[in-house]
Design a protein around this nucleic acid. Sequence first.
DNA 1: GTCTATAATCGGATAGAC
DNA 2: GTCTATCCGATTATAGAC
Lengths: 194, 194
Amino acid sequence: MAIGRRPGISRTREELLTAARRRFADLGYDKTTVRAVAADAGVDPGIVTHFFGTKDAMFRAAMDWPFDPDDFVRAIVGPGRRGMGERLARTFLELWQGAESQPRLLAIFRSASTHEESAALVKEFVHDQLYGRLAEALGGADAELRVDLALSQLLGLAMLRHVLQVEPIASAPVEQVVARIAPTLDGYLRTPRR
Amino acid sequence: MAIGRRPGISRTREELLTAARRRFADLGYDKTTVRAVAADAGVDPGIVTHFFGTKDAMFRAAMDWPFDPDDFVRAIVGPGRRGMGERLARTFLELWQGAESQPRLLAIFRSASTHEESAALVKEFVHDQLYGRLAEALGGADAELRVDLALSQLLGLAMLRHVLQVEPIASAPVEQVVARIAPTLDGYLRTPRR
DNA sequence: GTCTATAATCGGATAGAC
DNA sequence: GTCTATCCGATTATAGAC
């Protein structure tokens, strides 16, 4: 009694999503075509319409965050202020190394510059997830600005390292990069003395 | 004897380039169409072919850097180590504020994620202009990595502030941002003691 | 659930008249 | 230098057969 897939529910949908993630990650939203995704999955383009309706809906279905925002924030701020920059840097960079998470992140950020939906995903995450709990945990009148500064460091790192792939930083070990940027993040996140 | 434009050399070419810069800056390479650029300039799409040949050639013609790399590097490293982070931050941020330079920078960086030519422009600049003279001026075995780290901070800032336009950092005054990131840049650029 | 056929549109590029 | 007309390919999306 093998635990096979239930009959009638094909794996095609999942294969389409996997193919879509790879295309969106490598090429961005605009250059990714429904036809190519369907071809990668070995099916007809009409199937995409059947399952998702539109290219945009397929993008939304494929592009959920590869982590739970609650867990993410808790892992960073939970243990307290000490070592927060280091935890943030390491958690972030390891997400970008992961075989599952990297394509999703690449797709979102590669598309964010030109695709409104991707940009909205990023902004919503920052606004709804980070400002609420992270900024509150930090304290200080300009907590949101300080969160933005830390984000700018992380975002730029991801762009240079994983999107543009500029050397030597693209090939630097995670721990080396963590050691360098952790003090920067701590500096931004630390509550300013009045 | 007014110094007018020479007869026979129309201003159409310049108007096309201006329109192209605005389109590329707002929409990125993929979503910018030759037809729309021509319409903005009030001429027929065929004129684009006449002047530039291809869309890609028009992009190249429009996308020269809005500053002289030599001057840029000299302004940063010339006066010496003291205040280098601050000069770098201010020079960079003011370029992003300028009415002439911002559209060019926006176009390049908005397109860099998905357009190979834009990404190559960025990489060439980093490689040919920065590593050569900046890294040399900094000293230390890992000078290029430290330049990358400083770039990651600047690039992320530009993305968050000008491309994604995340608040509150998008509306923060230049001097406030300069004051915050200058210490970060100095930390990266400072020659490590052995 | 899957595919064929096709509609409707839009893209970049070209040829040639004026 | 500029425009008209057009080619040709590619794209998303739809209708309907199997």
